[in-house]
């Protein structure tokens, strides 16, 4: 079988992102964009999972995970805007 293209999903902690644009500028595949001062994965399907964005982000606001088919959208269900205390309430 031919090798399947790997799929990546982006965990973005919007509340922590300060819109500095570092991840956007250095993404080799131009996956990321700034929208209203926050990063968005505008072309997530082009991501090659190099982690350049994640490593350089000064605000721990973006993370890349390899997704196996059904886990692909997991990130969307996690509300990182909630403060951690809220999870213990």
């Amino acid at each position: 079988m031919s090798e399947q293209k790997k799929v990546y999903f982006h965990t973005i902690r919007e509340k922590w992102c300060k819109g500095c644009g570092i991840c956007v500028a250095y993404c080799p595949k131009k996956v990321l964009e700034l929208k209203d001062g926050k990063v968005v994965a505008a072309r997530a399907e082009d991501c090659i999972g190099c982690h350049a964005c994640e490593l350089r982000c000064p605000d721990f606001a973006i993370e890349i995970h390899e997704a196996s088919g059904e886990r692909k959208h997991e990130a969307e269900h996690v509300d990182f805007a909630l403060p951690p205390e809220a999870h213990h309430a």
């Binding site: 490593l55 982000c57 205390e85």
Partner: peptide, 26 residues
């Protein structure tokens, strides 16, 4: 990765684009 942080203190106080966060992450 986040388990090494006091998450209730984040986001941090550093300016947008300040490299100190990147070094702390490293």
């Amino acid at each position: 990765f986040l388990s090494y942080f006091r998450q209730d203190r984040l986001p941090h106080i550093w300016c947008p684009g300040c490299g100190h966060g990147t070094v702390t992450g490293a």
